[in-house]
Design a protein around this nucleic acid. Structure first.
Lengths: 224, 224
DNA sequence: CCCATTATTAACCAATTGGTTACATTAGAC
DNA sequence: GTCTAATGTAACCAATTGGTTAATAATGGG
């Protein structure tokens, strides 16, 4: 990946002559990143266009190469920022004070709600998996991408087992993947599934039923 | 979509002068379709290249437009052929003679095995969902794309309920989506998940554990 | 055997694309 | 106030791309 030039830390803004853009490297970079996230999520890495990103960011194409190096580095930055967003949201989840079954409900609900509110995260992830995670593998912040949900889930499972309300021998990572799978697949594939089943999987009633089913499935499995 | 020219039905092959390609429209079309399926699965619709498909098919670019019209029509044809393949495989599944729990195991196993053996189906579907199924919506054979597994599953659920070994009130479509989700998501996202968890989700042992977990989850939910 | 149609080959085209170059302006350090 | 570095603008470029045109050879019906 091309070396990225860095801005001076903590630069303050000052006046700018009329009719000229005030310089704001952090804002320029953030706008490019946001525009990139939208475009890559909408059209995938192969279909996304640098000029489209530029237009949406209200910037100049040169700035993309100045801040990010190339298209694929931009894609990785967009992906990392999407991961940071979900990890930040996960940090706010509090499950330790809940009884185990309620904690599971809350975790299933949180995961579902997040994917519902962030369809761009789903398509970005699909894009990255199409490319066999070759960008993510180069990321310098993989450690930061770990989900705190696995540890939370592990805690819930242990407390449930001790209380005698959950079955034993459940692997938290496996269950975490399953909880993600149930919501992710439904939303990710909703277009083809809706077309084939001839009904809109995104109708409010259908979404409500889906959440109920997912919760019942997971809790039904866990409960002794 | 551009109107597609059609070959005459049932044309027989005859001799061809040396140094010249014998005509074989069905074989040409089939090779292009297979090459398209590989290329679209590997690089997505936006990243796939017509010249790459041509080279892989051992044909001529003109032939792609002759048989399919344009790139997106070719993509739809590739997608339909992938659907036909899985539907054909599903037809061979026989569950009516099995007791309900064994039938569920068989169905979970079949779905998982199919996705394992056909990763191209997963990435093709992801591609089509990225484009909001706009190609599939134009397909003239959507009815044929319906899965027989839903009806099979419904039959299993009913027999299990009557025998008193399955819980009541389970929607076959919801459960079918969940069974697909558990395997599909794991395989579709295995690249990013492996990178983040720092372990290979595709190791034989991991795959075996995954199948065991999925079966336990579904049966654990169904069993009274 | 002739001829019209079909299937195929080879070359071509305009538009698009990711990325680069050259330059101008802003901004802060000294 | 000067000078250098950083940020930003505008124009440009070679390569690639999906799709088209023109022509040729194969094929089967009459």
């Amino acid at each position: 990946m091309a070396e990225q030039k860095k801005t001076k830390a903590g630069r303050t803004k000052t006046s700018t002559a009329p009719g000229r853009v005030r310089r704001d490297p952090e804002r320029t970079r953030a706008r490019i990143l946001e525009a990139a996230r939208v475009e890559f999520a909408r059209r995938g890495l192969g279909g996304a266009r640098i000029d489209q990103i530029t237009a949406r960011a209200g910037s100049n194409k040169r700035m993309i190469y100045y801040y990010f190096g190339n298209k694929e580095a931009l894609f990785l930055a967009a992906l990392e920022s999407a991961y940071e967003a979900i990890r930040m949201a996960e940090q706010s989840l509090r499950l330790t004070d809940l009884e185990p079954a309620e904690g599971i409900r809350r975790l299933v609900r949180f995961t579902w709600d997040y994917y519902l509110a962030h369809p761009e995260f789903i398509t970005l992830l699909n894009s990255e998996n199409l490319h066999r995670a070759r960008h993510l593998k180069k990321s310098k912040e993989i450690q930061a991408l770990h989900s705190p949900l696995v540890a939370m889930l592990d805690g819930l499972l242990r407390r449930g087992q001790r209380a005698g309300v959950f079955r034993r021998g459940v692997d938290a990572v496996q269950l975490y993947i399953s909880i993600a799978a149930l919501g992710y697949f439904y939303l990710s594939n909703n277009h083809t599934l809706s077309t084939i089943f001839g009904r809109d999987l995104m109708r409010p009633q259908a979404l409500k039923q889906r959440l109920g089913h997912m919760t019942a499935l997971v809790l039904g499995f866990l409960s002794k």
